[in-house]
Amino acid sequence: MFKTLNQRISLVLLVLAIVYLVLAYQLPSFAYTVIDADVVPKGLGFILISLSIGLFFAKDSDTEEQKARRKIPKKDIGTLLAVFGFVFLFIFFLEILGFIVTTAIFIFGCSWFLGYKKPVTNALVSILFPLFMYIMFTKFLQINLPQGILPF
């Protein structure tokens, strides 16, 4: 039944549309308006349902190039997940360790992981770049970035 890719995607979208609709139906009503806050979301939910049904029956129109994009080697999927993990940690520690420290570690680590093997240049860039950005933002533009554990 769910053989083609389009059919599988359309099911995911259908679930999304239904969840969205359920939430839209729970929106509280407001007494002083002609078109309440729930009208447009409800409409969108139903449109998405009909579009995903349309997609279910649609022919696969992807070109060879688009199909080739989907063939990712297993190893690269691992790399992608790892980088997303790094970004997650970057965000998590940003306000704890501060902008300079977190960013420096991130740039060095992420570049190293992705295959940049010049430790000296890498270290220089990953220290100088965040430092430059930090000073420019906080001192010149008066836009605060997290200071963290460093004293300035």
Partner: peptide
């Protein structure tokens, strides 16, 4: 890099 470092020195 050289330009950036000089610029930063001034900034600091």
């Amino acid at each position: 890099l050289a330009i950036i470092s000089v610029a930063m020195l001034i900034v600091i």
